[in-house]
Simulated assay, not measured.
Amino acid sequence: MASVRDWDSELEDDEAGAVIRAAGRQLKLWREAAGLTQAEFGAAIGYGEELVSSVERGRRIPRPEYLEGADEVLGAGGKIAALKQDVAEVRYPKKVRDLKKLEADAVELCAYNNSVIHGLLQTEEYVRASMATRRPPFTEEELEQQVAARLARQDILTEVPLRVFSFVQCESTLRRPVGGRMVMRRQLEHLLDAGRFRNVDLQVLPLDREDNAGLAGSFRLLRLRDGSTAGHNEVQLVSRVITDPKEVQVLDIRYGIIRAQALTPRESLAFIEKVLGET
């Protein structure tokens, strides 16, 4: 049986809490309608009574296998299992959910990075290695949650209809050995694969360029379906969506200059291959 320690216990915002409490109420109603006690129900699906109680009170997030087992035991015909998608979304930190929603509404995503490889282009090993350097460190459970959240966003690269992506990576991000030599080799190989997608333009801004309009740091632009554009900036302890037209315009101008200063996509793939050969 799973123990309470195996489950997420931090509901960090009102939206997540509301979803989990609603799911808990539905599970309790179905269980009571079936005439089962919490102990009987828990035994039937392979979980302890304490954990069942915590889920029904909205204090624990029910995992997909919990919902699937409940659906089968309670004869819900898919009605409980249907909660999996909503529950899965709130397992991720709020800032990740907010960004994912913004990305989902975008038709074009543009990003400049000068510290690490952009999150949508990272391998699982690279994600894990970069997050493991955090201080104070994540617990093992928090680290797994963060890694899963980062990887879940990457589906957007190949979702239909295809969006347009433009990435500019500072050369420093290609040479910084996050996770060690072999992790970086696989990361560079992954970049080469992603850079060949028809909907992805990947550019490198070499360190020997005298002019660099991105010295103020990494940022991204999202061109939305309604014709508007939003910016996003993430720095120490702050993740900020930018909607003020004047601020967005500044970022738009900077990104255009950065792209002009960078190598072309074709030149950039050759550059990445060169760095890979040196790694």
Rank of each mutant, 00 (worst) to 15 (best):
G48S: 12
E49Q: 12
V52F: 04
V52K: 07
S53P: 00
R57W: 06
G58Y: 09
G58K: 08
R59M: 09
R60H: 11
R63E: 07
P64E: 01
E68H: 05
E68V: 05
G69P: 00
D71S: 02
E72W: 01
G78Y: 02
K79M: 01
I80S: 04
A81I: 03
Q85S: 10
D86M: 05
V87Q: 04
K94Q: 10
D98T: 09
L99E: 06
K100E: 14
K101P: 05
A104V: 07
V107Q: 11
N114R: 12
H118A: 07
G119I: 05
L120I: 12
L121R: 00
L121D: 01
L121T: 02
Y126W: 14
V127Q: 07
R128H: 15
A129C: 05
M131A: 14
M131F: 15
M131N: 14
T133C: 09
R134G: 09
R134K: 15
R134T: 15
P136F: 11
P137W: 11
P137F: 13
F138Q: 11
T139P: 13
T139E: 13
E141A: 14
E142N: 09
E142L: 10
E142W: 08
Q145I: 07
Q145A: 12
L151V: 10
A152V: 03
R153F: 03
R153K: 12
R153G: 02
D155N: 14
L157A: 07
T158D: 11
T158K: 10
T158E: 13
V160T: 11
P161K: 04
V164S: 14
F165C: 07
Q169P: 03
Q169L: 15
L174C: 02
R175H: 04
V178R: 00
G180C: 05
R181V: 09
M182G: 03
M182I: 07
V183W: 01
V183T: 11
R185I: 10
Q187K: 04
Q187N: 06
L191I: 01
